[in-house]
Design a protein around this nucleic acid. Sequence first.
DNA 1: CGCAGTATTGAAATTTCTCAAGCCGAGTGG
DNA 2: CCACTCGGCTTGAGAAATTTCAATACTGCG
Lengths: 248, 248
Amino acid sequence: MLDDEDFAPQPNISDLLVAQASEHAKLADSDVAALREVHARKRVLTPGDDVVHQGERPAVAVMVLEGMLARYHTLSSGERQYLSFHLRGNLPDIQSLFLHVMDHSLCALDEAVIAVFPHDQMRRMFLSRPNVALAFWRLTLVDAAVFRQAITSNGARSHTGRLAHLFCEIIVRAREAHIANGWSCALPLSQGQLGQALGMSHISVNRAMQWLRRERLVEFRKHKLEVLDWTGLARIAGFDPTYLHIDR
Amino acid sequence: MLDDEDFAPQPNISDLLVAQASEHAKLADSDVAALREVHARKRVLTPGDDVVHQGERPAVAVMVLEGMLARYHTLSSGERQYLSFHLRGNLPDIQSLFLHVMDHSLCALDEAVIAVFPHDQMRRMFLSRPNVALAFWRLTLVDAAVFRQAITSNGARSHTGRLAHLFCEIIVRAREAHIANGWSCALPLSQGQLGQALGMSHISVNRAMQWLRRERLVEFRKHKLEVLDWTGLARIAGFDPTYLHIDR
DNA sequence: CGCAGTATTGAAATTTCTCAAGCCGAGTGG
DNA sequence: CCACTCGGCTTGAGAAATTTCAATACTGCG
C-alpha cells in the first residue's frame, strides 16, 4: 500500500516536534538531539474515532500530523461539549503525562493522522532536558489561554460574535501552522458541531452564519472556511490575537 | 501596626509553596531546599485591586495567602468575564513566567494577602530543579482542566446547573485548601459577579439561587457559601470532581 | 439617619430554542 | 443513468427561556 507521503509530503514527525518545541523555548543542539531520540508510531484515524476517552488513563500522548482533532466533554445527559480544536503540530493530550485520568475525550473530526509518543519516553526527556520541558509547558499554557477565550466567548459574546471569534482563531492558527491557503483553511465541522462548541443550537449557528455571509465576512462551505474580510470579521468577533501568544 | 499573624496565624509562605508543589510531584530534599530559597514579598490588597492587568508584562508571579483572587477578561465593550477564582495556595498568574503579555487581568475579590515572587528566581529554579518545574507545570494543567469545565458550564449546563457547579467546585477546593469550615466557606462575590462568571444576568443568578435555596441544597448569604445537601447539589450540578485531579 | 450597593420582584421585550417541514448534494444500488 | 436515501442545511412559526427595565426592599456603614 502506498504511503500518503508519495503524494502530499507529510512533515517528518521529528521535524514537526522540534519545530513545535522551538516555537516555545530556545533549544540547545543537545535538546534537539534528545527530541529526535523520541520514538513515535503513526496512526490513521477516521472521522469520529476517539483517541482517548474521558475516564481513561492513557500511556501515550499524540501529536496531530494531518487533519483535525477535537477535545470534548460528555455530560451525564449524553450531550457533547467541544472544548478545543487541534491542527497539525498540536499536542492535544500532552497534559495526560501529569493528569493521569482523562477529564475529557479526544476525537478525530476528519480523516486524520497522528504521531503517538509513549509517556515514559517523554517524562524521561523532560527530567533530563529542562529546556524541552519548559517548551512543552509553555505550549500547554497557550492551550489554557485558548480555553480562557472560549469561556469568554460562550459567556459574553453574541452568537455572531462567537462564531466569528472561532473563525478568527482557526484561520490564524491554520496560517501559523502553514496549513492555510491564504485566507482559507479546512474546518471539518457541521453546523451542529459548531453549536456544540459554542453553546448554541444548530439553528442559531445557521442564522449567525448567514449573517456573516450576507455581510461578506466569511464563506463556509463543505468544511472549508474562507475569510473574505479579515478586518471586518475580527471587529465583529472582538478578536485580539494576544491570547494565542505567537510571540515568545 | 500589628501584623495579621498576631490574630489568625497565616501560613508561612515557604511552607505553603512547598506544600503546593508537593501536591503535584514527589520532591527531593534538595528540591524543597531550593523552593525555600525563593525570596517573596508580601502584599495586602483591597477588594477590586488589580494585581496585573490585561496587556501588561509582569516581572513577578503571586501566590494567594488570604482571601480570594479572580482572573477576568475585559471585552472591548467594557463588559467583564470572570474566568476563575483562586484560593489560598493557588498561583493564579504563574503562566506569566512564559506567556509574557497578560491576556487577562487578575484582581482581589475581598481583602486579600498575596506573596510576590520575582520571575527570574522562579525561572532559575525551574532550570536547575526539573522536579520542581514539573510540579508547577502540573499545577497549571489542573488550572486548564478547571477552564475546560467552565467552558462546559457556560456552554451546556442549565442556569441552576451552572451555579450549582460553581458552588461544588468552590467548596471542594476550599476544603482541599483547609479554608473551609465543614461544608461552608467564604465566597466574596455578588450575584452580579456570579453572573459575569457564568454568562448569565444577575436576575437569572438570583432566580437560580432561590431555586437552590428552596430545594435546601445551599445557603449563600453575606459572602458565605454553605452547602446543605452535598449529594443533591452535586447531582443538580452534574459535578464530577475528576477534573480537579486531586490525586496525583 | 441616610446613602450606596446589593437583593428581590414583576412584567414586558427580546432572544433563543424546539419542532416541523422542505431542500440540496453526495453516495448507492438497481 | 436515474431513483433513492441519508445527512446536513435552511426556513418559518410557536413555545420557552432569558434579559431588560423598573420599582421596591434590605444591609452595612459613615
